[in-house]
Every structure is written in structure tokens, then in C-alpha cells.
């Protein structure tokens, strides 16, 4: 027994490219800016100018360092927001039905007027995608900008989530994972899009595209291929001046 739709017509979500994310937090703030004055209650900031400012955000950027023995360490910026899971535990635990997954596109939403703010959905989410707004006492989460993506008052080309539209590096892609021909499905297939914490059984829709290998960590023995490009001229051509002379003549 579940209140999750068995399947959804579309599976809208994000493909986030960890190879490109520079960790600029642009998506975080534009998300806050859009969402504080749109869907649902404003995203408040408590003690905003004080000692312990705490606000509600729907998207956060972590920075990790990854190191294996004897190699250079690498840093990876990691955006974290709702993955709009297919088996979303946050929906099934909700006692009021405020949390739901939309039949038509799979977006997981909170109907704030039904939310009692019990927090259980946040407890059940492995990804920390839900935060209670302290001023309003309701659960907030990424809406996949439902009030943008279908919005007739927004030009067609801008009908995408605020975070995607604003990302300067182009690290965030929005689309339908149910359509194998969509941008996100293709990207995910090409780049080996990852599911986060598959062992949690949530079947996330969003995918993370892994960082590409780094030349200073996973060395590819380049130097043999590259060495000819630096073969010294002096030896084969009898000195720099004579090389220069010939080369100038050849131009």
C-alpha cells in the first residue's frame, strides 16, 4: 500500500555535472530568490544579521576533497537538492498527505496548507533535501520550479528551473528522464550518470555526472605520445641558427 503513483507519465529532474560545477552557489541563491516570493511560504532567515543566522534553502553546495594514496588530492563541488525519487520515502511517511508525488511528471511537492510540520518526511529523506521553515513551520523542498516550467507568463526559453537558468557554468540540466531522447537521458547515458545512495532504495530521478579523470591524478602515460613534440632541433638540424635560417627560408 502506498500513496506513491505506480509510475509517472514523465520523470522530470536534473542532471548535475560534477565535472563542471565550480561551486559558485549561484543556483543556491537564485533558487532562494525565486522561491521566497513564489510557491508557498517565503523562505525565511532567522537572526538574519545576528550571531547565528539560519535560513531555509532548497539547494546547497558542498565541497569535498577526494584523495587516494600517493596521488594529488582533488576537490569536487557538489550541489544537493531534492532528487524527486521514484520510491520517495518522504511521501509515504507523511501522515497528512501534504507530501505527494505528481502523477503527470513525478515532481515531489509539499502542499503547505496540509503540512503540520512534523518533520518526518525530512527524517526519511537520505539526501537532506527537506528543511522546515522556522518562521512558517512548514516543510520546504525543491519544487523543481513547478511555477516556472509550465508558466505561460514566462517566455518559452525560460521555462526551466531557476537554478538551471542561472548556473553560469552550465552544470545543471533539466529534462525528462522518461524520454530516452531527452538531453538529460542522453547526458546521463554518455557520462555514466550516478544515482546517489542506491542502497537506500529511493530510486532517485536526478542523476549526477561524475568528474572526468584528471591528468595529474590518473596519468595516462601521455609523455611518450607527447615527447616527439619537444624533440630538440639542435641535434637533428645542426644548431638553432641553422634551423632558424632554414625555417625562415621555408616560410
Amino acid at each position: 500500500m502506498t500513496t506513491l503513483p505506480q509510475s509517472t507519465e514523465r520523470r522530470l529532474g536534473l542532471a548535475i555535472d560534477l565535472d563542471i560545477c565550480v561551486g559558485c552557489h549561484a543556483c543556491v541563491i537564485n533558487c532562494k530568490e525565486w522561491n521566497t516570493s513564489n510557491y508557498g511560504a517565503p523562505l525565511s532567515d532567522m537572526d538574519a544579521y545576528g550571531a547565528n543566522p539560519v535560513g531555509t534553502f532548497l539547494n546547497r553546495i558542498h565541497t569535498f576533497e577526494v584523495k587516494s594514496e600517493g596521488c594529488n588530492a582533488q576537490t569536487v563541488h557538489f550541489p544537493r537538492s531534492c532528487l524527486h525519487c521514484e520510491d520517495a520515502p518522504c511521501v509515504t511517511v507523511c501522515p497528512t498527505g501534504a507530501s505527494y508525488k505528481r502523477q503527470e511528471d513525478g515532481i515531489v511537492l509539499v502542499n503547505e496548507s496540509d503540512c503540520i510540520g512534523c518533520g518526518l518526511c525530512a527524517w526519511s529523506c537520505p539526501y537532506g533535501a527537506r528543511e522546515i521553515d522556522r518562521a512558517e513551520g512548514v516543510m520546504k523542498k525543491c519544487t523543481l520550479c513547478i511555477d516556472r516550467i509550465y508558466n505561460d507568463n514566462i517566455p518559452q526559453e525560460d521555462r526551466m528551473p531557476a537554478c538551471v537558468r542561472t548556473c553560469p557554468a552550465g552544470a545543471r540540466h533539466f529534462g525528462d528522464f522518461a524520454d530516452p531522447e531527452s538531453n538529460v537521458s542522453k547526458l546521463s547515458a554518455e557520462r555514466g550518470g550516478m544515482e546517489l545512495m542506491p542502497e537506500q532504495g529511493t530510486k532517485p530521478v536526478n542523476r549526477y555526472l561524475p568528474p572526468r579523470p584528471k591528468a595529474d591524478i590518473a596519468t595516462d602515460g601521455d609523455i611518450d605520445v607527447l615527447a616527439p613534440f619537444l624533440a630538440p632541433i639542435e641535434e637533428k638540424q645542426g644548431g638553432f641558427i641553422s634551423w632558424l635560417d632554414k625555417a625562415l627560408e621555408a616560410i
Binding site: 521566497t36 516570493s37 513564489n38 517565503p42 537572526d47
Partner: peptide, 14 residues
């Protein structure tokens, strides 16, 4: 002076 305690920017547009 000092800033306000809490900020709920967006409230005005609801």
C-alpha cells in the same frame, strides 16, 4: 542601528 531579527523576504508578494 542594527538589522531586523528575522527576514521573510517574499512575504510581501504573497
Amino acid at each position: 542601528g542594527r538589522g531586523p531579527q528575522n527576514v521573510k523576504y517574499g512575504e510581501d508578494f504573497k
